[in-house]
Write a protein that binds this DNA or RNA. Structure first.
Lengths: 231, 231
DNA sequence: GTCTATAACACGATAGAC
DNA sequence: GTCTATCGTGTTATAGAC
């Protein structure tokens, strides 16, 4: 995805990213040009493009780094409470806190998300490691929590919740209320709803619902990573 | 949104759109340039831009016209069956048949969808008429059908199903299986799931779930149309 | 007022020399 | 790994023809 990792290259890459993030924050993503970024780094335009093939790749790199940060924060979350809703809310809120200064960038990433063949999409084969890590974080939060869910659903729960997370992020990106207070309301409501629904999944007459749900997740999952024939 | 409607203008507009659609089909959206479109129409580049402010607006216009077509097909659907699942499946499948030759264009539209302030987004204030029409079509399909759902949910059901529709379309866009057979599987599974869940919503102990669901739809709805203060 | 043409701009991206 | 030079494209400015 990126050139081989040498000391020099890595330092330059980091420098470009930091500079770009600053400029994005100041002028916004669209109005910040690659020429501005290169100039601010005392580099030529071509050099900047050597390190990042596209402007959007800068955003993906930023997102990848927030992932690492989130990993180290996950322990704090699991230590603080065993409650499913509390934990998941904390996980999502941490993501929001991280990305808050760069809310617009989330939108840039979401734009790529719709085409799953786009290497920069969160659903693409190329971003699979990042996706798996994010799902792993959710799984960690589930393990040892008080979540109640039917047996057949349990192995797919983290993947389901990752999709749920995507939806909440989409809402958050577009939430114009001060400090995104509506997102918090959405979070509380949807987590309560989810909790009840998962509880209900253990009921005997929900067997059919469970089977359908599992198969749906598998279908969505099957679309994402493997490149198949087209029509 | 567009210049005043005179005979001449409307004819040219239609001609540009038709030509563009042909070129999109032949070369794809990205590789088709505005210059190509203008040339194929025996128009100057400036003239083309007089009629369509952006390249993406061509796609929106196409989408708007499929909406009108779908309206006239809705009667056939409601006449054919009273079954909720059958009707909704027919509605969605008709949309897919319409858009099948231009599947890539759906993706172009989806790209705009993520930023709800973008006038071309299906969630924007500007596209509200189109959105309302689409929801109206779903409401028509619900009325007189055998759908079973709790009373508090019923007034919001069409809006909920419109969101569901958006999800299915996203899947369809990215479905690489021949003739998008997986989308049909998804359709059957998700409709069955939906049906059961709506049935379950009438159960007494689902009161809380109903309330949460209604409020969530209202939150999403409230984000879309009204331009509010930013942060 | 409605429509069209010409010219130019800005920016993302690339080619090829060093 | 960095440079300079250049391209292609979406979009805009502007002037004027019907």
């Amino acid at each position: 995805m990126t050139p081989k990792v040498t000391k020099k290259s890595e330092a330059t890459r980091a420098h470009i990213l930091q500079t770009a993030l600053g400029l994005f924050q100041e002028h916004g993503f669209e109005k910040t040009t690659m020429r501005m970024i290169a100039l601010a780094c005392d580099l030529s335009l071509g050099a900047a493009y050597y390190h990042f093939k596209t402007k959007e790749e800068l955003v993906l790199q930023f997102y990848a780094e927030t992932g690492a940060e989130a990993r180290s924060h996950n322990g704090t979350i699991t230590a603080a409470s065993r409650d499913f809703k509390t934990r998941l809310k904390a996980l999502l809120q941490f993501k929001f806190t991280q990305m808050a200064p760069f809310r617009e960038l989330a939108s840039v990433l979401a734009r790529q998300a719709t085409d799953w063949r786009n290497p920069l999409s969160p659903f693409s084969a190329e971003t699979r490691p990042m996706r798996d890590e994010a799902i792993g974080l959710i799984e960690e939060v589930l393990e040892g929590s008080n979540v109640k869910v039917s047996a057949p659903l349990r192995p797919h729960l983290a993947k389901m919740l990752w999709l749920y997370q995507m939806g909440v992020i989409l809402f958050w990106m577009n939430d114009p209320s001060p400090e995104q207070r509506r997102t918090e309301e959405l979070l509380d409501l949807s987590l309560a709803l989810l909790h009840r629904l998962l509880q209900a999944s253990t009921l005997p007459f929900m067997r059919g619902v469970n089977q359908s749900a599992v198969r749906i997740v598998e279908l969505v999952e099957g679309l994402a990573p493997t490149g198949e024939e087209e029509t």
